[in-house]
């Protein structure tokens, strides 16, 4: 065999090896029956804090959100309640179905995006900033109405491409540490990263109160925390990538119980 042929063979073998190991390296999905909410990894004190409305700090935002729901605002002097009525009825289960496809935008919106769309279109008011007190409060109030209900985003021909895009982000090794979401949350959940148990990464309770933050925060904020930890460039605040990733994560958590506002360490 000539030297050139040997080289070609060597390159080909390397490619085959890389492809083979590439498949072996890909994360395996957690079987549906083995999925656990972050709640199940917490100690009894944190669980009690979440379960007791008078101890759950997220409930303060829920009450703020109720006031905002009923407040008339914007050029149309319209309140959320003006269109949607009593949120405890009309918003039941809504948050557990988000992100949901919005025809006017041609893509799924998360709950925050939908609230800001309502403000722009129906109230003719300026959008709330991401992570603002108001947006977290309104989101928490709407999300509270789905507590205990199963997570079930609608996956159909319109949302499937965005679900796929979210899955691609979940599986993407990125950042200086060259890690993917899947490598920790599919493959290593239950292990300790430094002292902290790695959860499975199901967004069952957002917006949620994190003791580490000492505040309520959105799933986008939590995702940015992970990206920063991986030394990856966080997607811009409000970027569609977060919505796609959220859609994938909600689909991954389909059937699990919605817990907002959750409490986490």
């Amino acid at each position: 065999m000539s030297r050139q042929a040997l080289m070609r063979l060597a390159h080909f073998s390397l490619a085959v090896l890389l492809v083979a190991f590439g498949f072996a390296a890909s994360a395996t999905e957690i079987p549906l029956s083995e999925r656990k909410s972050g709640y199940e990894f917490m100690g009894p004190q944190s669980r009690a804090m979440q379960d007791d409305d008078t101890a759950n700090p997220g409930m303060l935002s829920v009450f703020d959100g109720e006031a905002l729901w009923n407040a008339k605002t914007g050029a149309t002097n319209q309140s959320c309640a003006g269109c949607h009525g009593d949120a405890t009825q009309s918003m039941k289960g809504a948050a557990a179905r988000y992100p949901a496809f919005n025809a006017s935008r041609g893509r799924p919106l998360d709950l925050e995006g939908q609230i800001n769309l309502c403000r722009a279109d129906r109230q003719q008011a300026s959008p709330f900033a991401y992570e603002s007190r108001e947006l977290l409060a309104l989101t928490a109030y709407v999300a509270r109405q789905s507590r205990g209900m199963p997570i079930e985003p609608t996956i159909d021909a319109r949302t499937q491409p965005f679900l796929d895009a979210g899955r691609a982000i979940f599986d993407l090794r990125q950042g200086q540490l060259n890690l993917s979401c899947a490598q920790c949350h599919d493959d290593q959940w239950g292990q300790r990263l430094a002292g902290t148990v790695i959860p499975q990464g199901h967004p069952t309770g957002y917006p949620q109160y994190r003791l580490e933050w000492q505040s309520l925060g959105s799933l986008q904020r939590r995702l940015r925390n992970c990206l920063v930890g991986m030394r990856a460039e966080p997607y811009a605040v409000g970027a569609p990538e977060y919505v796609d990733l959220t859609l994938f994560l909600m689909w991954r958590a389909r059937g699990m119980k919605f817990e907002a506002p959750a409490v986490r360490p």
Binding site: Q174, G175, L227, A232, E233
Partner: peptide, 8 residues
């Protein structure tokens, strides 16, 4: 490596 934060 992809999407490395600008600082790194």
């Amino acid at each position: 490596l992809v999407r490395v934060a600008s600082a790194y």
